[in-house]
Design a protein around this nucleic acid. Structure first.
Length: 568
RNA sequence: GGGCCUGUAGCUCAAUGGUCAGAGCAGGGCGCUCAUAACGCCUUGGUUGGGGGUUCAAGUCCCUCCGGGCCUACCA
């Protein structure tokens, strides 16, 4: 039994996430966590909401709530949706937790002691009317290059030229529209990532088995241009972790908070500490290699936009602390899911969001489609037609109908108990060995986190059941040799029990229904032959209702129309 | 501008430089009747974006052109 620490990139608190966000981190992380638990390993699966930063403050201002209250409410909402999708976090924390405050301040203190923090005085735009400093992209104005009137302070979207906010003609606040702006001097802390460049580069170089997507992004940031740059880790905001060195004040930094990208990854640790406090466990044995974490395998899941923070910033924090914190062992990164030819868009309400999805269909439909089409090698596209076809075929026809035909046939000929009868023949032994090969391949793909390939193997295992049934034809056998038909049906029923276990990482809700209907165990089929005889003659079961209703053409058309843009 | 990824069957995707480039879906034919008009078997379909090169051998390596996507450090 191994110990696995799994973290999913933290979803930002600002609003409900869409399916692209879901498939990029939380869902595959859940798949892996469920699989490893199924194999009997000890798993700590951590996620949390990322609650700090300007967008959270603005979103709260918009609803008129204090930001802390807004975050509390949105956290509850995201938790509920996570539960609805069956995301099996051991703890779903909050980056605003006291645990994270303490840890973030602790790391900052350690980094400062190691000489990895420097103070920088810089000029930033302050909006008098908004009463806050404005991040570059919250300043709008006319582009000096092309004359576009809605250029942002960091870049003009029209001509793609990189800008400095002070370049803008007629600058104004993107928040209030106020032109009462001034440039003020402000002091910030910078993390000296440049000083750690060689160490990080060496570390990345040693990760030859990581996805190319992960290492290529890391190397780009390490070596492009002048190489890895130092980054500001503080902001002039109210909402966040106050800047301190451990529990000591940080002279000159009063009223400032740490920047989200600094405190957010630390919340992986913070959330584990939250878990410990809530459950009464020991979080350090997951995170401190001097306190029991030396045998932990740590895997992170994230979308490609998060890779720089996890390959550079967070490791600099961890390594730079000089303390024996657990460093990530494998970073599984994903491309984007696109929606019907374009991007999912939160602002335009384009695409399907987590709450919409659960209103439409049970979670397992979404889980199956998203995971079996995970954007691993490139961006992948969601279309309603593809979704309808895949789900109807894979879930309703291949898996659902298999369960239906076996259980209903048994009920009509033998009743709702596993029938006694003849012993296995060649066909059954061949099936068992074919399934064994497939199960071992499935495990291998899951171990490698090859998600689409794992889904294909699982589907192939379902197909084997239909092939067997077709060849064995118990409905025909029954007429001349009921004893043999009973054996064939018994094997079919046992296949359902096996499918429940194997499918659980992808389809946890369906798997639970199957286990309940079959009264079968959740034990992983290390020995497939044994698993296929686990339900003995006389074992009672019930015929489940059809597992998956098909998506009709009318539904598909209606949904396609409804989610094309402008969310109501 | 620079960098990275990507282009393979109608669609979605596979293929450590090594048999005839494979699956699933869709299409066509046949079979079955237990089952959600489901299942099974067979089958059509590719000049691997174009061109050039290296090699005994290229989807795979190199060059070039064309198309798509992403990143480029103050959104997170």
């Amino acid at each position: 039994m191994a110990r696995h620490l799994i973290t999913s990139a933290l979803p930002y608190i600002n609003g409900i996430k869409h399916l692209g966000n879901l498939v990029g981190s939380q869902l595959p992380a859940d798949l892996y966590a469920r699989y490893l638990r199924g194999r009997g390993h000890e798993v700590m699966f951590i996620c949390a909401t990322d609650e700090h930063g300007t967008p959270a403050e603005l979103a709260a201002a918009k609803t008129g709530e204090p930001v802390a209250e807004y975050c509390r409410r949105m956290h509850a909402e995201q938790s509920k949706l996570a539960e609805g999708f069956g995301l099996s976090f051991d703890h779903y924390g909050r980056s605003s937790s006291p645990q994270n405050h303490r840890l973030t301040q602790h790391f900052a203190g350690r980094l400062d002691a190691a000489g990895l923090i420097r103070e920088v005085s810089e000029k930033q735009v302050y909006s008098n009317e908004d009463g806050r400093f404005l991040p570059d992209r919250y300043i709008e104005g006319t582009c000096p290059n092309c004359g576009y009137e809605k250029a942002r302070g960091d870049q003009c979207e029209n001509c793609t030229k990189q800008l400095d906010p002070t370049d803008l003609i007629d600058p104004r606040s993107a928040i209030s529209g106020s032109t009462d702006l001034e440039v003020r001097e402000t002091k910030h802390l910078f993390l000296r990532q440049s000083a750690m460049r060689d160490r990080i580069a060496e570390w990345i170089d040693s990760k030859t088995d990581w996805p190319v997507l992960t290492t290529s992004i890391a190397k780009k940031w390490l070596f492009d241009g002048d190489g890895l740059q130092d980054r500001g880790i503080t902001r002039d905001l109210d909402w966040g972790v106050p800047v301190q060195k451990g529990d000591q004040a940080w002279p000159g930094m009063e009223g400032k908070v740490f920047y989200v990208w600094f405190d957010a990854p630390i919340e992986y640790i913070g959330a584990t500490a939250e878990w410990a406090e809530a459950q009464g466990g020991d979080w350090e044995r997951w995170w401190r290699t001097d306190k029991g974490a030396e045998d932990v395998t740590y895997t992170q899941f994230m979308g490609k936009d998060n890779v720089p923070f996890h390959t550079l910033g967070f490791p600099v924090t961890i390594m730079g602390s000089g303390e024996p914190w657990k460093l990530v062992d494998y970073i599984k990164s994903f491309n984007y899911l696109t929606y019907d030819g374009g991007q999912f868009s939160t602002s335009q309400g384009r695409g399907v969001f987590m709450d919409d999805a659960l209103d439409l269909l049970p979670a397992d439909y979404w889980r199956w489609w998203l995971l079996s089409h995970a954007p691993e090698s490139g961006d992948s596209e969601f279309t309603w037609e593809n979704f309808q076809q895949s789900v109807n075929k894979d879930l309703a026809d291949v898996l659902g109908n298999f369960v239906s035909r076996v259980t209903k046939f048994c009920r009509s000929k033998f009743g709702e108990a596993v029938p006694d009868g003849a012993a296995w023949g060649d066909a059954e032994r061949e099936l068992a060995s074919a399934i064994t090969r497939r199960v071992r391949a499935y495990e291998a793909q899951m171990d490698r986190m090859e998600i689409r390939k794992a889904a294909a193997e699982l589907r192939a295992i379902w197909v084997l059941g239909n092939e067997y049934l077709q060849a064995a034809a118990p409905w025909a056998t029954f007429k001349e040799d009921p004893d043999r038909a009973a054996m064939q049906v018994r094997l079919g029923l046992n296949l359902i029990g096996l499918y429940a276990v194997l499918s659980a990482p992808f389809l946890p809700f369906t798997a639970a229904r199957l286990r309940e209907a079959m009264n079968s165990s959740a034990a992983w089929p290390d020995d497939v032959d044994a698993a296929l005889t686990a339900l003995p003659p006389g074992h009672a079961f019930t015929v489940p209702d059809n597992l998956f209703a098909k998506i009709t053409d009318d539904q598909r058309d209606e949904w396609s129309e409804r989610f094309s843009g402008v969310r109501g």
